[in-house]
């Protein structure tokens, strides 16, 4: 299987409208050579999972600042599983309290990246994780 650029869906679930962080991340991942599908704000779990499915992405990145992550993220994970997308790499960012990170990891999130994260570190993390998953699929 030939390598393709890493495809990433960046979405903002829920009702907060602050998308600057999501846009900065989208731009940084573009600069890291990835194809970033940007779906914008106020996405429902169903919309996010459907977009991830149609776009056949390697990564779903969720940005949230409303505090509703423990409510919305499990629903997104469920939707993705229902659609057969359980292998997709899940990452999140925004305002996520440290004490919630363990719960998110258990849910299947590979990483949570809060304010102050270097975008290079994020790109590197995604690249390594996707490479590992792709290697896993082909062997």
């Amino acid at each position: 299987m030939a390598d393709r650029p890493i495809r990433v869906l960046i979405a903002k679930p829920g009702l907060d409208g602050h998308d600057r962080g999501a846009k900065v991340v989208a731009r940084a991942l573009r600069d890291a050579g990835m194809e970033v599908i940007y779906t914008g704000i106020r996405q429902t779990p169903e919309m996010i999972a459907e977009a991830a499915l149609q776009e056949d992405v390697d990564v779903v990145g969720l940005s949230i600042l409303s505090g509703a992550h423990l409510d919305l993220f499990p629903r997104i994970v469920d939707q993705l599983k229902q659609k057969g997308m359980q292998d997709v790499l899940l990452v999140c960012g925004g305002i996520i309290p440290d004490e919630d990170i363990a719960a998110l990891k258990k849910m299947g999130f590979a990483g949570a990246f809060g304010p102050g994260t270097s975008t290079q570190d994020l790109a590197k993390f995604i690249r390594e994780q996707v490479a590992a998953r792709r290697a896993g699929v082909t062997t």
Binding site: P5, R27, R30, M34, E35, V36, E46, E50, A51, E55
Partner: peptide
Amino acid sequence: FTGGAILGDRLRMQDLAGDDGVFIRS
């Protein structure tokens, strides 16, 4: 320069999200 891309057309097509009679690919 980088081979990366921002695919932003779905942003304007949110009305179609969740409709399984429409398949959108960027």
